[in-house]
Simulated assay, not measured.
Amino acid sequence: MRTTLTAAGVAATALIALAGCSADSDADATDESSAGATTEATADAGAAAGADWPEEITLALIPNENVTDLVTTVAPLTDYLSEQLGITVEGVVTQDYQAAVEAIGSGQAQIAIADAGSLAAAEDMYGAHAVLQDVRFGASQYASMFFTNNPDKYCDDEPVMATYGATGQEFLYCNGTAEGEDNSGVGPVAVDALSKIEPGTTVAFGNTTSPAGYQLPVLALEEQGVNIDDLQQVPVTGNDTLLMAVYNGDAEVGFAYWDARSSIDAAEVADLGEKVVVFGLSEMYPNGGVVLSDELPEDLRTEITTLMDGFSEVDPETLQEIFDQTDWVPADAAAIDLAREVNSRFSGQ
């Protein structure tokens, strides 16, 4: 899951580090038969727009573990947009989400693929337009899950084994968070169970910019009257290390996106789903997505949105490789407002 940008930090600290992605890679990765059906109509639309459309625009995204892989992966998308729009779309890799938003604000990029907090920040700071949200495992939103190695304390019922549909793995859940095949990960569920966390309890938090690992849990804890300064905080980076901190007993409670237990190799930690029990789910938080600069003509923004929205039918393999997602759907303004609320609460951290 992506980490969230805090709005105040963007303007003050974001550093642009753009590295060009080649737009000349082999376009065979794109499904030519699907793309061909729309090529002529889109090209006509681009021609009709005339001088109102720029000759070149830039799409910014952040690096994955291997920047070279991302450069290779995104080329089919930028090639597809270039062909369909009739203008050059160049891909660039930015240092982080803050830099992607700053690239939109400074005119160095006109399209950014970023997390939800960045979508909200780009709208608020630069008048940009959040147009699409990512879809993963059939959903455009996700919850933070609360998990523990002490179910006797945090579970009001006997933990039950339920199937995580995305992988078919079985894990333990309690307090009505899941049952059998009914395991959607939709919150909020059993948030009041957080009130059982006592001062001095060891709690594993993720990075302060992580919605699932820190921000959503902190908001939920505060709603339950728990002062996080009274807790023995175990700061870690990464959902796998959050889980292992609780599994190994370094923390009694931890937080991560639902259901991050699937990210741990079952061959290495076979009993993770039994020792680490989910006892609650937070409010839903929006996935990231696509934001467009207000500098782009409105008809061009509409065309880009339509093309990217339909990219899952043209080249689902590339979309999966970019950010491990299956689709883009129209952005939900109310969901982006929640990201905006989180930005406001955690500005300056």
Rank of each mutant, 00 (worst) to 15 (best):
T4P: 05
T4K: 09
G9E: 11
V10S: 06
T13V: 11
A27N: 09
A27Y: 06
D28H: 12
T30H: 06
D31N: 15
S33T: 14
S34K: 13
T39M: 14
T39H: 09
E40S: 15
E40D: 15
A41K: 10
T42K: 09
A43T: 13
D44W: 09
G46C: 07
A47Q: 13
E56M: 08
T58N: 02
A60S: 13
I62D: 11
V67K: 12
D69G: 07
D69R: 12
V71H: 13
V74T: 02
V74M: 01
A75P: 03
A75G: 04
A75N: 06
P76I: 06
L77C: 02
T78G: 06
D79V: 14
D79H: 14
S82E: 04
I87R: 04
E90M: 10
G91E: 05
G91L: 03
V92C: 08
Q95F: 11
V101Q: 03
E102P: 06
I104M: 07
Q108K: 15
A109D: 05
G117R: 08
Y126C: 01
V131P: 04
L132T: 05
V135H: 01
F137W: 14
F137E: 15
F137H: 14
G138D: 07
S140W: 03
Y142C: 09
A143C: 12
F147Q: 09
N149D: 14
D157F: 04
Y164W: 10
G165R: 10
A166V: 10
T167W: 00
F171L: 08
F171G: 03
L172G: 08
C174E: 03
N175R: 10
T177I: 04
E179A: 13
G180C: 01
S184K: 14
V189T: 12
V189N: 10
A190T: 11
L194I: 08
S195K: 15
P199D: 05
P199K: 03
T202M: 14
P211V: 00
A212R: 00
L216V: 09
V218W: 00
V226L: 02
V226I: 10
L231D: 01
V236Y: 01
G238W: 00
N239Y: 11
D240T: 15
M244F: 10
V246A: 03
A251L: 02
A251T: 05
S262N: 13
I264K: 03
A266D: 12
V269E: 05
D271K: 05
E274G: 11
V277M: 05
S282G: 03
G288F: 00
G289V: 04
L292A: 09
D294R: 04
E298F: 00
L300N: 00
R301V: 07
E303W: 01
T305D: 04
M308F: 00
D309Q: 15
G310F: 02
D315H: 09
D315S: 12
E317S: 12
L319H: 00
Q325M: 14
W328G: 08
W328R: 07
V329S: 01
P330G: 08
D332G: 03
I336K: 02
D337H: 11
L338N: 01
A339G: 07
A339Q: 06
A339F: 03
S344L: 14
S347T: 10
S347I: 06
